[in-house]
Design a protein around this nucleic acid. Structure first.
Length: 431
RNA sequence: GUGGGCGUAGCUCAGGUGGUAGAGCCCCGGAUUGUGGUUCCGGUUGUCGCGGGUUCAAAUCCCGUCGCCCACCCCA
């Protein structure tokens, strides 16, 4: 094999494609039941969009983004995430006015140039949802309800929703400084990565998995204890509403998120069976992002699920999703070149009634065609050989009953009449 | 970017101490005339990841390189 796919890019074969489609269908159903409308977004955006939203110094933009210069010199990027595009589209198309309270969802591939591993690829798919124009706690609670319902609908096993508040512009800067201060006092106990984080992104000190850092940071101040009054009230109300709604969440005061735009409510859905990458989805509130991208001062909260991870986390006994193979119900078996034309024409007419009909090769012997019929699980085989062409009537083999029905119908018969005859000799589902 | 593991037919793998490649599955064909699921017989596909070295001889030893996987980082 000379030419292969690119590292981190892969082919989704039919079995997996069927599962992905089932997951997408289940998710779409829940999203639409909450009143979300689908939006299709470009795969390419100006690089500037992500620098201004995700953050120019974030890992995603700094070292994971696929970007290149277009012929006119503008920096183009393959989108590493969906929220930035959704917000851009929301502002650019005037939805801030026509749809001031908007619920939008999208799905599709995202691109990040990371080292591939279990559940992580350079091209991966997300299903995302954004809720614009509401900054009240009920909007947060509704969003968490949606997240929980999607997990249930998809059949994700062993899920847990971690919840935290990241504060806002009023209280986070002071906390950030306090955390940095604490970190500097314990700098000698921190790993090199964490030392670098001290100035650049002290919040990340909290979720380092290095044992030494964990120990050093165990007594560090937590955002949750430094929230300003409005943030505190908001967070408490979200928790209260979730309790009433019956959505279980786990308070995780050490959870931070890597994207710059989050504020207040942040959450992550983790599941079992994923290896080290155990997050199936995550999101949070991003009040201020709409304004940062040139729109009005509008609130927003959203999340995204990783399709590959949803699949991994629901796979082994995700039987409720089933793998709906495109089961062909009828195999058209032309024996000899003379039958090719009539078979093609008949198969086509039968398909117009909604039947699934696969056409075999006229050059193959009937035995081989029958073998294939069995392999694909065909319910009936319509045999067209010299005798059938001569008489103008088809022979039908009932694969289940192991019976032939000679001259069952005329080649020129009405398609629906043919279907009726097939139903008379054996019950079958047409779809 | 950093570690660790692995690279033999489409798939799963076998090939002690070097002798020049195999099994099962899958696929295709046959077992007398136009009929499947079992059985039997036969068959196709390999630069043994790639390059170099040692050797009379390497899939097997040495070096390098690439790729995949897992983990760190980060995140979906």
């Amino acid at each position: 094999m000379n030419v292969t796919s690119i590292k981190g890019f892969r082919d989704v074969l039919p079995d997996e494609a069927a599962r992905r489609r089932a997951i997408l269908d289940a998710t779409r159903g829940v999203l639409e039941s909450y009143g979300y409308a689908e939006i299709e977004l470009p795969l390419l955006e100006k690089g500037e969009l992500f620098q201004r939203s995700v953050g120019a110094t974030s890992d995603i933009v700094e070292k994971e983004m696929y970007a290149f210069e277009d012929r006119d010199g503008t920096l183009i990027a393959l989108r590493p995430e969906g929220t930035a595009s959704a917000v851009r589209a929301y502002v650019e198309n005037g939805l801030t006015r026509s749809l001031p309270v908007g619920r939008l969802w999208y799905s599709g591939p995202m691109f990040r140039r990371e080292r591939p591993q279990k559940g992580r690829y350079r091209q991966f798919s997300q299903i995302g949802a954004e809720f614009f124009g509401r900054d009240d706690a009920a909007a947060d609670a509704e969003t968490l309800c949606l997240v929980a319902d999607i997990c249930a609908a998809v059949g994700v096993r062993g899920t847990r929703i971690d919840l935290n508040s990241l504060g806002d512009a009023a209280c986070r800067p002071a906390y950030r400084e306090a955390l940095s201060e604490y970190g500097r006092l314990h700098a000698s106990e921190l790993c090199t990565d964490c030392c670098a984080r001290l100035e650049r992104n002290p919040l990340r000190l909290l979720d380092c998995k290095n044992p030494g850092c964990k120990a050093a940071m165990s007594a560090a101040p937590l955002m949750i204890d430094h929230l300003c009054d409005p943030c505190r009230a908001h967070h408490d109300e979200v928790l209260r509403l979730l309790g009433v709604a019956g959505v279980a969440v786990t308070a995780n005061p050490r959870m931070v998120r890597g994207l710059d735009y989050y504020c207040r409510t942040a959450f992550e859905v983790v599941a079992e069976g994923l290896g080290a990458q155990d997050a199936v989805g995550g999101g949070g509130r991003y009040d201020g992002l709409v304004a940062a991208l040139g729109g009005p001062d509008m609130a927003g909260i959203g999340f995204a699920f990783g399709l590959e991870r949803l699949d991994l986390a629901s796979r082994p006994d995700g039987d409720d999703l089933g793998v709906a193979a495109a089961a062909v119900k009828i195999l058209m078996a032309p024996v000899g070149e003379a039958a090719a034309g009539p078979a093609l024409a008949l198969a086509r007419r039968l398909r117009q009634t909604g039947l699934r009909v696969e056409m075999e090769s006229p050059g193959r012997r009937l035995k081989a065609q029958m073998k294939h019929a069995d392999k694909i699980g065909a319910r009936f085989v319509v045999i067209l050989g010299d005798a059938e062409i001569a008489s103008g009537r088809a022979t039908v083999r009932d694969m289940r009953a192991q019976l032939d029905h000679a001259s069952l119908f005329g080649l020129a018969d009405d398609a629906t009449a043919i279907v009726t005859k097939l139903e008379q000799i054996g019950q079958f589902e047409q779809r």
